[in-house]
């Protein structure tokens, strides 16, 4: 589970530009609906929340349900008004949080 999330976004942008951000994190996203070989239900274990902040301000977030595919892929946009840092966080059902950071600069 300690695998690094994959992020794809430009390194720099012009002021006011809307950029696209692609994220992918490795996770089983066990739905809680499946049963193991003994017929016992496999307990639910999913990423239930994803947030993206830019310089401490919320940009995009989502609440996820078991109907999200394994290795959740989330793509969204962000408007760049200043140089700064994106902070991404994926919250697991067990309370652990996977985090990632990415810097973006303004084009001269």
């Amino acid at each position: 589970m300690a695998e690094k999330p994959r992020l794809k976004l430009p390194k720099e942008a012009t002021k006011g530009e809307i950029i696209q951000i692609k994220t992918l994190v490795s996770h089983v996203m066990e739905s809680g609906q499946r049963k193991d070989a003994q017929g016992k239900p496999i307990p639910r274990k999913i990423i239930n929340k994803f947030t993206c902040e830019f310089n401490g301000k919320p940009v995009f977030s989502c609440v996820l349900e078991p109907a999200i595919s394994a290795n959740p892929y989330i793509q969204f946009d962000a408007r760049i008004d200043e140089a700064g840092t994106f902070k991404f966080a994926w919250t697991d059902d067990d309370g652990s949080v996977i985090t990632a950071e990415e810097k973006i600069a303004l084009k001269a």
Binding site: P58, I74, F76, D77
Partner: peptide, 14 residues
């Protein structure tokens, strides 16, 4: 949020 710039997103669902 307004910082999203565009209300656009892609995900993969079951």
């Amino acid at each position: 949020t307004p910082l999203s710039g565009k209300a656009e997103a892609s995900i993969r669902i079951r």
